[in-house]
Design a protein around this nucleic acid. Sequence first.
DNA 1: TCAAAAGTGTTCAATGTACACCCATGC
DNA 2: GCATGGGTGTACATTGAACACTTTTGA
Lengths: 260, 260
Amino acid sequence: MAESKSELLLNLIKEYITQTLPSVSLDLVIFGFHDGQLKILLMRLLHTEHWCLPGGRIYQEEDLEAAAYRSLQERTGLHELFLQQFYTFGDVARYRHYTNREAIAKLGLPDWFTKDVNLISRDVSVGYYALVEFTRASPTPDLFADECRWWNIDEVPTLLFDHNRMIQVALKTLRRQLSYQPIGYNLLPDKFTMPQLQQLYETILGQSMDRRNFQKRILSYDILERLEKLQNGKAHKAPYLYRFNMDQYQKALEEERFLF
Amino acid sequence: MAESKSELLLNLIKEYITQTLPSVSLDLVIFGFHDGQLKILLMRLLHTEHWCLPGGRIYQEEDLEAAAYRSLQERTGLHELFLQQFYTFGDVARYRHYTNREAIAKLGLPDWFTKDVNLISRDVSVGYYALVEFTRASPTPDLFADECRWWNIDEVPTLLFDHNRMIQVALKTLRRQLSYQPIGYNLLPDKFTMPQLQQLYETILGQSMDRRNFQKRILSYDILERLEKLQNGKAHKAPYLYRFNMDQYQKALEEERFLF
DNA sequence: TCAAAAGTGTTCAATGTACACCCATGC
DNA sequence: GCATGGGTGTACATTGAACACTTTTGA
């Protein structure tokens, strides 16, 4: 079974070499939200304790964005997600702390591989971030990884390559995006309460906000529909459930007139 | 002489093939400002009437950003400029309206070239925009071009590839940048008047502003130093000259707290 | 002395911020 | 009945927008 996986991996590498663009790759910063925590999907590289961002390659006849969507779907099982390109990383030193020989050894690939294949090649990598609904995603490792799971954003370990920096840049872009576009769809369940939405904003921005002003502001943008109250059996007033009005939400996304 | 240039071109293409990264390139949207007009530097492709953005390739041991700076310097003669990555374009169709054979014929290269070289390959291209001082730049075509000159932004013709779209995206990013960072250094001469600065803002944003409110707002950010009055022999009150206080200007750039 | 363009200040509206009171619910 | 957390409204401060008058200068 381990043999078979190794063979699959060999085939995938061959496919990559013959059918994808050389020198370019993409990396995904996949954000989720659960228990009041912002989370990121990370992969553990085969036979190692090294974690990194999920990535992907671009097939010769595939659009860049399509490749990003495909990779995202392969890692989460989800489609129709929010996906946004945020920066392209191209420093030569990006890969310096991991040699080709090491990588091939770690992956358990035959030694002769080293001559023919640059597994750790110097790629320019296009960074995308995605917002996904934590409960619906099924983290799935690719053939290069043993494991794929969520990490709290403030507990992310030192990652391979320049992936920690990528997360920083992604988060910065996400925060900026928050100041002119609404957020929440794809990060929250279909129905959610106002305190939940506020918690999301506070978590992303890393600061707390006034409950009453938050509600006023969000409601003033007319992107929410109020539903029934949530009966959750807690010892306090039941909060209302809300749902995004997708027409209005889309309009706000396009017009970029949502100010926060 | 034409022979010699053709040889140089051949050598450059060989150098590109052997020493730069395949599948990745970069394109430059170089903004200048003159006579109250926002301008863009365009190149006319060798032996054609087709205009396009200046571009560049990345050497194997060169950082992406360094490659962008190098290309910018080659086209303008300037260094220490404002340069900002804004988006990476990777649609397969980007190149579709120009075949490899056509390109090679147009460039006056030998026909046998067609077999070996994909001059119009499917590249993912990283877009950068730059702000340069119109009067100091010396537009210089590369070996692929006959001509390199400024165009008013509202007179830009239909360009090759997806370059018109690139300009749109660059301009949109520039406008957004204007809302949280100061601008003007690298686009204006060292000393400039308040009306000049305002004209720059109005041109970039495409809307006129109140003279008095503009002045108040800009001055409140403490990034300007007032100098002597400008004696220009015009039949009206002489405006003050200003200069950017670079310490404050840099601080404002970094803190992104400049709100416009 | 007049037109053109620049400097400065005031008023008002809108927006954002701080803050207080009431309500529903389970223990 | 009380602690917890949620809903709503009001007062104040800050910011942004609209607007008018004065100054300098060359023709």
